[in-house]
Design a protein around this nucleic acid. Structure first.
Lengths: 311, 311
DNA sequence: TTGTAGGCGTTATCAC
DNA sequence: GTGATAACGCCTACAA
């Protein structure tokens, strides 16, 4: 790991000339450039981005703070974000946090290191981010909004997601429906539920909401409610539900239909038979890359669609 | 985001004094220290770790390169590693890669930034890491070993894992067993299979190995082999298997038993009924933290155990 | 075409 | 106790 100064000495030129060679800048003869690049290569010279970032004042790293709550959804989402950022020359690193304190600790570190942006997945709505942390970097949140300066919330229209679910189920002829979701107060959860229940009311559907997955409660609710369909907040929940139901000998989708949300690639190996609403991973990735790239062109809201797995 | 120099000016002292105050060093009066800390706080001063690391030559970041192949196992494992590193004052960041080229790119970046170590999850055995990348940081691999200087492979005894599976199944009275695994050539896969088949041979069990999960092949193999048990390489595979089998109306574990490996926390919500062999996440985390901390005390190999879920 | 000097935000080592 | 000063590895501007 030699430095540019050491490299300059090895080449018997000045540091400035080395810099010209490495950055393809003009004002250097072809011969010296080639010599320098040659020697740089044999010595495995690699510039230290940290030093560059120190002097230029801007880094090319986007950090993400994600709940260590293990989730296939997050991993697939972040893979997508990474690809889009990589395409425009940014590095993307993830840091898992256990609780809100650790989240703030991570953001403080990102900020102190002058990362150019932080993507955060809050575990509940409206966590507040101290202004000082956001002073020199953008805070981009997904799933749930955060409070504080310089922050943006990137989300598809989750109310529309819920509405779409209700419409789809109505069209399939379902009337008595269970909506299974979480107690957590995060935008994606609340908005999807609102969109679903509102549209269901409009369509005169009979909906019962269950805010936690408890096998006994679910099974008794199914009977009591005479439910023919379950709308689950996400595919993971849909999968858990499916296992509980099939274990009871109830046939899916013959006796009861299940609809999830996500359809991330990884789920397809397990969930190849659960009908689901596509979450727009790609759109989120594009959106984040565009914001970081300083593009003002607001991308159009993605078109939601239902992926029918079993007919 | 003020610098230590600006802070010094605000306090009307020199940068050196500011440094003494911030680091609780001696050679400073209580009064000046308190004044400086006070002003630092109101201005939200936070030192830039990148600059510190530049001059001290050592960073406190451990980077991990993980396949973007989505896996609950990895996430739970890395959460564990993070906790152990955090306890000894290191930051841990993850960077997902799509292929070997991107893996090397990530390692090059870690190295150029002088990260103190890289944890890597190779997608196959014996990928070779250029010596230059390993010149100034340790390369710690899990799951599969890598080739190159300065690298260490942290793994439990996977042969023993396989043997334990065979012994457990024999003790449960199984004789005709299917071993379901992957075609990929990585240590964990090969060694587990070897341990299992060798011990099974010793115990006169009748084993048939299937190296890819294909529903039809699996079902026909079960019939043909008259299998009463399936040993799956991991819990994810076990879960996929379970779904295929139950869908066919075969009762688990009455008609057929399934054994997986992992038992990471996240699986318990889905897999609460699959018997599994505990993967020593915690041991791996401790081991990595110890190596990075420079401790020579080799931790004892973890004791493997079977977690029986359904009796 | 090339070399020199200054500075980014720290820490460390001198003096005073 | 406190304040200069040099250094880390790089980039930019200006001088030769």
């Amino acid at each position: 790991m030699i430095s540019s100064l050491e490299l300059a000495k090895l080449c018997k030129v000045s540091q400035g000339t080395v810099d010209r060679a490495l950055h393809n800048r003009k004002g250097i003869s072809k011969k010296t450039r080639e010599k320098i690049l040659e020697i740089a290569k044999t010595h495995g010279y690699a510039p230290n981005p940290a030093a560059r970032e120190l002097i230029t004042g801007k880094s090319s790293i986007v950090g993400a703070a994600i709940p260590q709550m293990n989730s296939i959804f997050f991993m697939d989402l972040f893979t997508e974000i990474k690809e889009h950022l990589r395409a425009i020359g940014y590095r993307f690193v993830l840091a898992p946090f256990a609780d809100e304190a650790e989240l703030l600790e991570i953001l403080a570190d990102f900020s102190a290191r002058r990362y150019c942006a932080a993507v955060v997945v809050p575990t509940q709505d409206n966590m507040s981010i101290p202004d000082q942390l956001a002073a020199n970097m953008k805070i981009l949140s997904v799933i749930a909004p955060v409070q504080g300066k310089n922050s943006q919330f990137i989300t598809p229209d989750e109310v529309a997601t819920g509405s779409l679910a209700a419409e789809f189920m109505a069209k399939q002829g379902h009337h008595n429906i269970i909506h299974l979701t979480y107690t957590r107060n995060s935008h994606a959860i609340l908005a999807r539920t609102k969109g679903f229940t509102d549209k269901a009311a409009e369509l005169k559907l009979h909906v019962s909401v269950l805010k936690e997955l408890d096998a006994e409660k679910l099974l008794s609710l199914i009977k009591q409610h005479k439910a023919s369909a379950i709308f689950c907040h996400n595919d993971w929940l849909a999968l858990e539900t499916l296992r509980i139901i099939e274990r009871e000998g109830i046939k899916v989708p013959d006796e009861i239909s299940i609809l999830g949300v996500d359809n991330s690639p990884t789920f397809n190996s397990l969930n190849s038979d659960i009908t689901t609403i596509q979450y727009p991973h790609q759109w989120v990735g594009k959106q984040i890359a565009a914001i970081i790239n300083g593009k003002k062109t607001a991308l159009k809201t993605p078109i939601l669609k239902v992926i029918k797995k079993r007919s």
